[in-house]
């Protein structure tokens, strides 16, 4: 082990579905090794007690959507030596960032019987918009292998092996047939960061962009090709506007095709 004292781990939740936190618990084979390597100090999904901070590593799930969140993330940052965001919500605002393109008060009025009790911000934003972030782990949800690699990298003081290249590169390594070229299926793989294990294209589906924009994403060139495949503006807009709707490249491209 690298240190005599086990580093203290905290797992925080903001606006999210808890799926990324559950990915930690999904590390079934590695969970005991993880519990040996770090002291799980704060993780409401996994333990009732809480060990006081400061924390060596904080994993933050979820986006900032309320005034309370906005204050709380500052406290989390102050209590954390390293802060890693996990998942599309924490890294790009999540699916709830669809509110950024609409009037959130109208949503609240449609959903709640007494919307006047709802205190919420007009936009759902990534953690990095509020506090400095040491590393952003992508995905909706995050990938277990990548999460373990980030944790191991933290423990041993090395750079995480989390590539920023396209999904396509891994599709080709896997030997998948390109669903866009061979079937004409719309696919965000060429503009999306890898990490999911090429899940959808391995099952003959186009990539939905769960891991957000890759490095130097050419969203406009792909959109032009999608139009040739027969997609209209509305469809292209919706393709770019899902789990990573507020990631810069996807947001800007979706705005070129819709309101």
């Amino acid at each position: 082990m690298p240190a005599a004292r086990r580093p203290k781990l905290a797992v925080w939740k903001f606006a999210s579905c808890d799926g990324c936190q559950l990915t930690i618990l999904d590390c079934e084979d590695e969970l005991l090794a993880l519990a040996d390597a770090v002291e799980i100090a704060y993780f409401p999904e996994a333990r009732r007690g809480q060990i006081r901070g400061p924390y060596d590593l904080s994993l933050v799930e979820g986006s900032v959507t309320t005034p309370h969140d906005r204050e709380r993330i500052q406290a989390v940052r102050r209590a954390s030596k390293k802060l890693v965001t996990i998942g599309a919500c924490a890294t790009a605002g999540g699916i709830q960032a669809l509110r950024n393109f609409a009037d959130v008060r109208a949503f609240a009025a449609a959903v709640y019987a007494s919307p006047q009790y709802i205190e919420t911000l007009s936009a759902s934003t990534a953690i990095a918009r509020h506090v400095p972030v040491d590393f952003e782990l992508r995905g909706c949800p995050i990938d277990k292998t990548q999460l373990l690699d980030v944790m191991t990298a933290f423990l041993y003081g090395r750079k995480p092996n989390v590539p920023a290249h396209s999904v396509c590169l891994d599709c080709k390594r896997e030997g998948n047939l390109c669903v866009m070229v061979a079937h004409g299926t719309a696919c965000l793989g060429p503009v999306t960061q890898t990490g999911c294990g090429v899940l959808c294209p391995s099952h003959n589906r186009g990539c939905y962009g769960c891991f957000g924009p890759k490095e130097t994403p050419n969203t406009a060139a792909l959109a032009a090709w999608l139009r040739r495949l027969g997609l209209g503006d509305g469809e292209i807009m919706r393709l770019y506007r899902t789990f990573n709707a507020d990631a810069d490249a996807f947001r800007d491209e979706s705005r070129r095709h819709g309101p």
């Binding site: 082990m1 690298p2 590695e30 090794a33 993880l34 040996d36 390597a37 373990l148 690699d149 944790m151 191991t152 423990l155 041993y156 090395r158 092996n161 290249h165 396209s166 396509c168 590169l169 080709k172 390594r173 390109c178 793989g189 060429p190 503009v191 490095e215 130097t216 994403p217 050419n218 060139a221 792909l222």
Partner: peptide, 26 residues
């Protein structure tokens, strides 16, 4: 798109990189 498909399907492109990993328990 700088997606790398051309280099993957090219029968002569040969470039590789190496990645080092460590288990959680070191």
């Amino acid at each position: 798109l700088s997606c790398a498909n051309c280099t993957m399907v090219c029968p002569t492109c040969f470039c590789t990189s190496v990645e080092d990993t460590i288990s959680l328990d070191g």
